[in-house]
């Protein structure tokens, strides 16, 4: 465990806390993509199946349980208590393409053809594109309230910190070699590029995030 990875994990946790805060504070899930949230739950469930077979550390196991639990809870809130506020008409991204993309790459790029490895690879590719429905929704509505933009920023930051962690591990851990993780992770971070730019600009002007349409 290095500092970049720890900070990456923490910003991931913070992003989920921000999302829950947003839902509570505004008592609504306006501007949140249900599709992205459902994809994240699928990502966590398929990736963390190894909870039952491998033990890495207490920290690792607890975080996995935390991610599955919180993303289930968000989805539950969106589907029950705040269902009325879900902006279905703007959440129109076709996720079949994303799932298809992840399935194809999961079948082409696993390190070994075992169930767990293929599902793990699937989860990496799916995570790399799972934010797209959310970014697309943001683009079509043009504006989002502060907590939502902080949420997306924290998510992007988590991946950017992980990328730095990979460079660090590559340099200092001679046997560490995870090409699929790296490519999928860099793709994921790159998708936030545009968003980062507008986020920083809106912070500098002290205004709400507004994207060009």
């Amino acid at each position: 465990m290095n500092l970049f990875r720890l900070c990456g994990d923490l910003s991931h946790v913070i992003s989920i806390v921000l999302l829950l805060l947003k839902i509570r504070a505004t008592r609504s899930c306006v501007g949140i993509s249900l599709k992205t949230q459902a994809l994240y739950l699928l990502v966590f469930v398929t990736r963390y199946l190894d909870l039952f077979v491998t033990f890495i550390s207490l920290y690792n196991s607890l975080m996995k349980v935390l991610f599955i639990a919180t993303s289930s809870y968000v989805l539950y809130l969106m589907l029950t208590k705040y269902r009325q506020t879900y902006d279905k008409d703007h959440d129109t991204f076709r996720i079949q393409f994303l799932v298809g993309f992840a399935i194809v790459l999961a079948l082409l790029t696993p390190h070994r053809y075992t169930m767990l490895e293929v599902l793990w690879t699937f989860s990496l590719w799916l995570e790399s594109v799972a934010i797209l429905p959310q970014l697309f929704m943001l683009q079509t509505t043009g504006e989002c309230e502060n907590l939502t933009s902080h949420y997306i920023f924290a998510l992007g930051l988590y991946r950017a910190l992980y990328a730095v962690n990979w460079v660090y591990r590559y340099l200092f851990e001679p046997d560490y070699w995870q090409p699929v993780t790296w490519v999928a992770g860099i793709l994921q971070t790159a998708l936030y590029g545009d968003f980062f730019y507008y986020y920083v600009m809106s912070k500098r002007r002290g205004k709400k995030l507004k994207l060009p349409t």
Binding site: E173, D175, Y176, W177, Q178
Partner: peptide, 10 residues
């Protein structure tokens, strides 16, 4: 085996 299969990251 190699560290390929050690998925110690989240």
């Amino acid at each position: 085996d190699t560290l390929h299969e050690v998925h110690d990251e989240l």
